[in-house]
Design a binder for these strands. Structure first.
Lengths: 137, 137
DNA sequence: AATTAATTCTATAAAATTAGTAGAGTTTAA
DNA sequence: TTAAACTCTACTAATTTTATAGAATTAATT
């Protein structure tokens, strides 16, 4: 399941994607339009900025805008940024790989093979959903 | 990501699936073979029993055994039993549907459509992984 | 230079969830 | 009657999540 953070991030990105290219959106404006607690959204937008998904303009009349093309921001990206691994266990993850502490011999693990299959399928699906594809629908 | 509970449940089921059909396995035997804390495993096996995946024999020489065919226990089943919804948000879930509190009009939600697509794909993949398919690998 | 309105940053807190432990109770075979 | 197993309820500790608070910084305007 997605965390609230990831859900709010997606809603904020969808909001930004629906504005004119030149428009910068204030946090309060996004918060109200997408029903997100404002102070929480501040953190989320900073995370999105650090992830190079959005850019910001400081000071009066400042705000946020999409930095990446909406075609290049996928559900997988946002999941990874806020909720980490796509895979069901760290040992089956590409970007967040970690060995299981209770694992004796990873190559012998019956579970891992199946989980890698799931990750491949899920990732394919999640990379197919972009901010642009969501806005179009 | 899977919880430890779900992971342990799968490891326990894999252990049971590898025993002879007539064999009943004691909790301590499964715990040691699969490196699972014994008292924690007790709870998990009870959950699996309540979910009708395993059966038990009480008293001396008692233990657990597979109740369902290993072909009929899927990753999706175990995920749902221990970790709940497969979907990324409750509003996109079949079995754990719940409306988002911050949602104004669900039919207008841009996010939901995409998440339903993801759920369909993920579910298909997870239903394809059975205890039997894992043991064969 | 002062004011206003915005982002940025750090710390904190409350709530929920997860992971695991403890111990008494019940059942069954020998 | 005893031993060895499952069953059940309660509890605890740690972690993560979901925020909130407030000061600092930045930039445009007057």
């Amino acid at each position: 399941m997605l965390s609230h953070k990831a859900k709010y991030a997606l809603k904020a990105l969808l909001y930004l994607a629906q504005q004119e290219e030149t428009h910068v959106s204030r946090t309060i404006e996004i918060a109200e339009a997408a029903s997100i607690p404002k102070k929480f959204l501040e953190q989320i937008l900073l995370d999105l900025k650090r992830g190079h998904f959005v850019g910001s303009k400081q000071g009066k009349f400042g705000g946020y805008y999409l930095l990446k093309s909406k075609n290049d921001i996928t559900l997988a990206d946002i999941h990874r940024l806020f909720d980490g691994a796509i895979a069901l266990l760290p040992c089956a993850s590409l970007n967040f790989y970690e060995r299981c502490s209770d694992c004796v011999d990873e190559s012998e693990c019956l579970l891992r093979h199946g989980l890698i299959t799931i990750r491949e399928e899920t990732l394919k699906a999640m990379e197919g959903i972009t901010i642009a594809s969501l806005v179009k629908k």
